[in-house]
Computed example of a mutant assay.
Amino acid sequence: MTGQRSDARRNYAHILAVAETEVAAEGAQASLERIARVAGVGSATVRRHFPTRKALLEAVFKQRVQALCARAHALRDAADSRAALVEWLRELLAYALAARGLADVLSYEPLQDEAAEGSCATVIGEAGSVLLRRAVDDRVVRADTGIDDLLTLVVGIALATENYTDPAAQADRAFRLAVEGIAPAGA
């Protein structure tokens, strides 16, 4: 963005604001043409700033993803490393449900090996890895658990429950079952 003309920076900011509203309403499939129309620019202008749908979605979610990463950083020294990891995953799930389309962004690409540097998937994976490593080191999470496993779980729950009447309640139930297992209490 540095080095761009002031009108180009204004266009970028305005398109992004319109995109945030549209993605909140329509999810990851929000129409790029509608975003351009509402923003009062041509679709070529939208594509110049955001060459792909994924680039637009990444920009829409960037600030909140940074907040989730900061939250992981804040939780890394918690007394109970498993509880800290589960709390962070629950917050990620809640945001993925509230920010329609984030789960789609995270599921566009492999979550670790081939993810672009600085992408939502990469920075979330890096932030969560710190919490996971500590929980594994403390022997409160299985050693064969990878951050890809956990992010796939959260993304899967978010995508599977987003169209329920009460997606948050259904997602919470699925998340609890995944974290606690299906064994009866005391088994």
Rank of each mutant, 00 (worst) to 15 (best):
A183K: 14
E58F: 03
G186E: 09
D137G: 08
D144Q: 11
V136N: 01
D149L: 03
S129W: 09
R139W: 11
A28C: 09
L57Y: 09
D7K: 07
G118S: 03
V18H: 00
Y164N: 10
F175L: 06
E117P: 04
A78V: 09
G42A: 14
G3C: 04
R173D: 13
A98N: 10
P110V: 04
T145L: 08
V141P: 03
A55T: 10
A169S: 15
R53F: 05
Q66H: 13
T21F: 01
T21L: 11
D113I: 10
R34Q: 14
A158R: 00
Q112A: 08
G146V: 02
R142E: 12
A67I: 06
R173W: 12
A70F: 07
D172A: 15
L106N: 03
P51Y: 13
D80M: 06
A72M: 09
T152H: 11
L150K: 00
I124S: 01
E126D: 11
D172G: 07
A96K: 01
Y164D: 14
R71A: 09
W88K: 02
G181A: 05
L97E: 04
V46P: 06
G146S: 15
T21M: 05
D113K: 10
A74K: 15
E26R: 00
L132I: 02
D172F: 05
L131Y: 01
L16C: 07
H14A: 05
M1P: 10
A99Q: 07
A94E: 14
E180A: 13
T145W: 05
E87S: 10
K54M: 09
D7C: 03
T2C: 04
E20C: 12
L57D: 03
L16V: 04
R134H: 07
L75Q: 10
G128K: 05
W88H: 08
R139T: 13
A98S: 14
A121E: 15
L56W: 02
A74C: 10
N11L: 07
R37E: 12
A171Y: 07
A96V: 05
L102D: 02
R142S: 12
E22I: 00
A67F: 07
D148M: 06
A25K: 02
L93K: 00
E114I: 12
F175N: 03
L85G: 03
R100L: 11
A99V: 04
V46C: 07
A187N: 10
F61Y: 08
A103Q: 02
K62D: 15
A187M: 11
V23T: 02
M1F: 10
E117K: 11
N11D: 14
T21N: 09
S31W: 06
A94V: 12
R37F: 06
L56F: 05
Q112I: 08
E33S: 15
V23P: 00
V23F: 00
R176A: 14
A44D: 12
S6V: 11
D149I: 01
S43R: 15
D149C: 03
A79N: 13
A168C: 10
S31G: 12
R82C: 07
S43A: 11
A78I: 06
K54N: 11
L93N: 00
A185V: 13
A171S: 11
A174M: 15
D104K: 01
S43W: 07
G156C: 03
R134F: 01
E180M: 12
L150Y: 02
G186P: 08
A74Q: 15
L89I: 05
L92N: 00
V141H: 01
Q66I: 06
L32S: 09
R139Q: 15
V86W: 02
F50K: 00
L32W: 06
T145R: 07
